[in-house]
Design a protein around this nucleic acid. Structure first.
Ligand code: SF4
Ligand code: SF4
Lengths: 144, 144
DNA sequence: CGGTTTTTAGATATTTTTACTCTTAAATGT
DNA sequence: ACATTTAAGAGTAAAAATATCTAAAAACCG
């Protein structure tokens, strides 16, 4: 019950793009270096984020990624679920038909609540707030 | 980011034992049948639950499992973490040294909060309450 | 005591997921 | 045209999940 590496990398990538600002083009190489993400893996992650309309990919020399959403409108939950899919916590929340008891099960109700709370917390945090605290991006300022 | 099958099975097993009552011996075969758990897999799960002092295993004919904790003192969180280990949600919460930014990272703080809330929710539910609602154990009453 | 039943505990096996990596090709600035 | 940069998808290695198998131990029964 933990976030995958791809999810964590996606957050770091968007953190860096948010720090640079919406609409600003940043090269893949730079992001990979600053955020400690394997470059080829970053490609895969960026593709998913593009599908989710969070960023746009520009090819060619001077290519890279551009954040298309305003950091103030973009939450942790959106980025995470773009990569790992919707969070459910337990299988019977995703597919209630897998357990005949799901419509009356007391445990099921706890998972529903837990899921709602977790997603609320992750959805209440926007990237503009995250990057506003300069301390949270200690090595973004360093030269590459 | 979801509970493993072993975790779900553990909850069902303890649900059934709680329904039968603390100190009551129930055979493995019966639990496996009622809770739809592969019998051999149930052995492995029971071993973990015994290590966590939640139940005791009795061998021999008329053997089985006995709940050693009072259902009112036993929470969902205890049972789950006995099987899947402590919940952390993100690697850097389990091992802050894996990311140099962890002591100042704003995202890290969100995960700390999310983890605390999730564990609180799971820890606030005891098994006596779960089994008190007769509807949550629809097929426990059926004959085997 | 000896046989039968029931579970143990560890080894093994299969499948799925994770976490990358490689390769070929496409896009684009100069 | 050509060099640079990324795309897209196939491929792979390792880990985790999900069981299953087997030899043996425990305990009841007659
Ligand atoms: S028993 Fe309850 S919690 Fe478990 S799978 Fe069924 S509905 Fe979900
Ligand atoms: S960047 Fe923040 S959230 Fe991500 S691993 Fe480091 S401390 Fe954790």
């Amino acid at each position: 019950m933990r976030l995958t590496r791809a999810g964590e990398y996606a957050i770091r990538c968007i953190m860096y793009l948010s720090y640079k600002g919406k609409g600003k083009l940043v090269s893949k190489k730079e992001i990979a270096a600053k955020c400690a993400i394997p470059t080829h893996f970053l490609s895969k992650i960026a593709q998913e984020l593009q599908k989710a309309k969070i960023l746009e990919i520009k090819q060619g020399p001077r290519g890279g990624f551009v954040l298309t959403k305003d950091p103030s409108e973009l939450t942790l939950l959106e980025v995470i679920e773009a990569i790992i899919g919707e969070i459910y916590l337990n299988d019977c929340i995703a597919r209630p038909e897998m357990c005949e008891a799901s419509n009356i099960c007391a445990v099921h109700k706890v998972w529903q609540k837990a899921r709602r709370e977790l997603r609320n917390i992750l959805n209440s945090v926007t990237f503009d707030k995250l990057v506003k605290d300069p301390k949270c991006i200690p090595n973004f300022d360093k030269e590459i």
